[in-house]
Design a protein around this nucleic acid. Structure first.
Lengths: 179, 179
DNA sequence: TGGAGCATGTAAGGAGTTACATGATTGA
DNA sequence: TCAATCATGTAACTCCTTACATGCTCCA
């Protein structure tokens, strides 16, 4: 129900084509929303039909033409409406947690291996976010408005990776001690 | 793709009816997987068709009869297979984070109000998990096997609530300082 | 000429939500 | 008898994933 709104936010920051949006969702926006290119194209089409965005075909040299979308007035109005509406708690669905809870019904060693893989993965991501923070916000103290928002959401990404790293470490330590 | 497996884990711990499973997902299992009763009934039906679970109608006094499901051999085999298979990173979709990133395109005060509501909500949930931990695991040091798993997943729930509380607090503090 | 990357899609199906429906029993 | 709770479902719809399809341009 909110991919529309994630796209509206991203297009408000800067107009983009479908593929450019896909890359944003793979990179920076990916730490709080994931979406495949198929889904993005479909939703963009619907948003254009609804008049939330307008589309301009832009020719490129050395590349196929692309369709650049930008937010139109009805889209801006919808974004404002949604931002002011109450937010439901983010529903959580963690396959990892289910596996950990059920580990005793299968091969525990295999589950521990997966924990180690998740841990390595989250460390990689945290390192990536740390690089982004250093590059884009070397001095966070004076930030305000939109810049502060971007910084704080990146902080959320960092904190979330810390959560995973700390918890997976606790999990592995507890089980390694009990071998 | 994994509600099946969450149900297999829960039914392995103890056979249950659809409504009992729904209550488990509302309570203890809810901190890592959410599911509505409609979805649970539908998936239970499919799992019975596939032979993963068997179903026994149990009469009750003073209440309508219920259908109690328990895991059958093919279900146990499937659970083992799934537990050993590689785990993809949990996809993240946080409406709150999208709103925070987009706050400058709407009514910031309204977004801050929602942050306060989320904060209160996560504090309530943490208090609930803390109570569960005290009641069920007063002395975690000696835990092993299945009990240790349950405890560590509860720890994950607590840590996750801490993440939200800390981050939302940072967010609110940063924006209140900059008014 | 043929592969890699850019760019945009369609089709089919599974996962999940929302709204509605049914019937039994208890207790006020 | 009527509301509340227990208990199980159906129907319709949206959301999301997986797999496949198309065409362009550059460069080796």
């Amino acid at each position: 129900m909110a991919l529309e709104h994630a796209l509206l936010v991203s297009l408000s920051e800067r107009p983009a084509s479908g593929l450019e949006l896909t890359r944003r969702f793979d990179a920076s926006i990916g730490y709080f929303w994931t979406a495949s290119h198929q889904q993005i194209y479909r939703v963009l089409g619907r948003m254009e039909t609804d008049g939330w965005v307008t589309c301009t075909v832009v020719a490129q040299q050395g590349r196929p033409a692309k369709k650049v979308y930008e937010v139109a007035d009805p889209g801006r109005a919808e974004l404002e409406r949604w931002l002011a509406a109450p937010t439901a708690p983010d529903p959580l669905r963690s396959e990892v947690m289910v596996k950990f809870r059920g580990a005793s019904y299968g091969d525990r060693a295999a589950v521990l291996d997966q924990a180690r893989e998740r841990l390595a993965d989250h460390r990689t991501r945290l390192a990536h976010y740390d690089r982004l923070a250093e590059r884009d916000f070397p001095e966070p103290a004076g930030l305000r408005g939109r810049e502060l928002d971007l910084y704080l959401v990146l902080r959320g990404g960092q904190r979330l990776e810390h959560f995973w790293i700390d918890w997976l470490t606790e999990y592995l330590t507890a089980h390694e001690e009990n071998r």
